[in-house]
């Protein structure tokens, strides 16, 4: 009999990752509820309408979905992987015939599935309690789909790559969380992007979250709102290119810098 293929083992790892994640109840509840709590807070504080038919909640939902991609992928992995390294979990895996590709596939499956649950819950609560409207055209749903696919792939790859940065498992959260929060403020998740200072907009434009957020706005806001974007349009093809470049950067560095143990 042959050794199982990397893809086969990757799927098995994915199932295992989800099972392990689902058993950490506090963490599941927190991950899933946090965006909803934020939506409730911001939706209640900012009662303003940004444009005809665009409530702040509507604007905020696009930002929260984009952030969700960053949280479940980049943030979660850049914290969990250094911990798995410190606990010896990775070294144990390294001693088995399971290839590193399977480990990455398993993580990607975890990210995508927790992402999908989070988005579904956020949208359901948004529609039920905060007057959020879902997109009506199939073009917008299609845009939504590819944004989630490329976005979570890039987020996963960058999370694995960034996991090489924290020196210890315990310190990982302290290194990673501020990066994500600052990025969220800069990228127009909490505020209307074009209201931010120009330098902040320029810094944000280097990173993928700004583009993901803009893409999500194109899905959830009416096309008339595109006029208020920096370029005066949604720039969908530019968004796709920039996200793909970041995906490439993430894959390159995760393959190069991934470490099984601390030495």
């Amino acid at each position: 009999m042959n050794i199982p293929s990397a893809l086969n083992l990757g799927l098995r790892r994915g199932v295992l990752e989800i099972r392990q994640f689902a058993r950490q109840r506090e963490s599941v509840v927190f991950t899933m509820a946090f965006p909803i709590i934020l939506l409730a807070i911001f939706g209640s504080v900012f009662k303003t309408t940004l444009a005809p038919g665009v409530t702040f909640s509507q604007y905020f939902v696009s930002g929260m979905i984009a952030s969700g991609l960053v949280n479940t992928g980049f943030q979660q992995l850049a914290i969990i992987i250094p911990m798995e390294r410190e606990f010896g979990t990775l070294k144990r895996l390294r001693g088995t015939p399971m290839p590193v590709t399977s480990y990455f596939i398993g993580k990607a499956i975890l990210v995508v599935s927790s992402m999908l649950v989070q988005v579904a819950l956020l949208l359901a609560c948004g529609v039920l309690f905060f007057g959020v409207h879902l997109p009506t055209s199939s073009f917008k749903w299609l845009t939504f789909l590819w944004l989630i696919i490329i976005g979570s792939a890039a987020s996963t790859a960058l999370g694995i790559a960034f996991a090489a940065v924290p020196k210890s498992g315990r310190g990982a959260s302290a290194v990673v969380s501020p990066v994500v929060i600052v990025l969220q403020f800069f990228s127009g998740v909490f505020f209307v992007f074009t209201d931010l200072p120009a330098w902040m907009q320029q810094v944000a434009a280097i990173f993928p979250l700004k583009w993901l957020t803009q893409g999500m706005r194109s899905v959830f806001l009416p096309d008339t709102f595109a006029a208020r974007e920096v370029a005066g349009s949604w720039e969908l093809s530019r968004i796709a290119i920039i996200l793909l470049v970041w995906l490439g950067v993430g894959l390159f560095f995760s393959a190069r810098t991934f470490k099984w143990s601390r030495e």
Binding site: L16, R19, Q20, R23, Q24, M83, E84, F87, G88, T89, R92
Partner: peptide
């Protein structure tokens, strides 16, 4: 021994 959460 590993010292992971051991949720399995």
């Amino acid at each position: 021994s590993t010292s992971d959460a051991g949720d399995l």
